[in-house]
Amino acid sequence: MIYLDYAATTPIRDEVLQVYMEVSRSYFGNPNSLHDIGSKAKQLLELCRLELADKINAEAEGIYFTSGGSESNLLAIRSIVDGYKHRGNHLITSATEHSSVHNLFRQLETEGFKVTYLPVTLEGQVKVEDVKAAITDRTILASIQHANPEIGTIQTIEEIGKVLRENQVIFHSDCVQTFGKVSIDVKKAHIDSLSISSHKIYGPKGVGACYISPSVAWKMQVPDTFHENGFRPGTVNVPGIAAFVTAAQLICDEMGINTKKYQLLRQKLITGIQDIDHTITIEGHPSHHLPHIVGLSISGTQGQYIMLECNRCEIAISTGSACQIGQQKPSKTMLAIGKTHDEAKQLIRLSFGTGTKEIHIEKVLEVLKTITKNL
């Protein structure tokens, strides 16, 4: 089976799995325990916090480990909104956010908050001037994803962050798809809070992290919580965290090599598609995009049909974000970039990873050519 769905999840690396097993054996103590076994686990946990903070140029005391990207988004936004709701009740986000963010903002609307859902261009980018225009004297937080998980468009977060910082609006960014693929500097981008996930970077599932700047106030969501400085209840997953941070170290070290590889694979795919059929459209921004994600639309055909045909030919692709699959709903990203409901269901997504080879792209092109010819 050719796997081209790395944006959904990645296989755990051998080195990472080895770390998980070793830490499970040797650092099994609860880091909150006061005995030596607990202290040993605590020391490793704090080393992991320091190392992860270094990868995003952040303060270690602002790193909180979670169960993944969705929980990081939920806890970060909730905690910060509760910490600043005395200053206002207006929030800003985009029309193309991950479901964990989008659904939370819908819920916050039922609790009395006013939310501005910023439109995006045909390429999927939020306009900086729209961010600026949306800010009011009641705005307390804006959440803009770093890159779209379905079409790969990267937002101009440095410019957006600058505008938000100038207007004293807290900036949260969902960086689950970008961490380890493009450089992230929270200082340079004026990011106050962000979320990342382990299983997107060849780490174990069920582990992630949230960063909240120590200068930002936040409110504990579950009273009398002691783990992660009160940010999240539950015994800390030290083996998972150590494996996650190991995966982060490896992927950040290999970022340049991987980027070059994905760019070559992407160009081979796009060139081949252009030679196949004019009914296939490449979605997303032509230059500001993640190198490993390619969103495609095939005119007149639902993406689910293309996905199933590819699966029959032993190629694993997706019809968009894994968190939306199965809902039989059109992609909200596609709707946001101006597609009709029928057109929005035509999306398929191919995403590359460390195991992707040129021969895999050639096979995909061969299958797509056969499918479009039969259509």
Rank of each mutant, 00 (worst) to 15 (best):
L368T: 09
L47R: 14
I361Q: 04
E366Y: 09
K205W: 04
H190A: 03
L250F: 12
T225I: 07
T246S: 15
Q18R: 14
K369I: 14
I144F: 09
T281S: 07
A147M: 13
D5I: 07
Q267Y: 09
V182C: 08
S287C: 09
T96C: 03
I140Q: 00
Q346S: 06
K369L: 15
L350P: 00
G203T: 08
S39C: 11
L17V: 08
T356C: 07
I63M: 12
P291S: 03
S213L: 05
T110K: 09
T279L: 05
T136G: 08
L45Y: 02
E343F: 10
D192Q: 07
K127T: 11
V169R: 06
T259L: 11
Q18P: 04
G206H: 14
P31K: 05
A58H: 02
Y262E: 15
Q263N: 13
V216C: 02
T121D: 10
E314M: 15
I251M: 12
A8I: 07
R138K: 14
L164E: 01
G240N: 03
H288I: 05
V115Y: 07
G180Q: 13
P233M: 09
A95P: 04
S70N: 11
E129W: 06
V120C: 00
V182D: 14
S287H: 14
A53I: 12
G29M: 02
P239H: 05
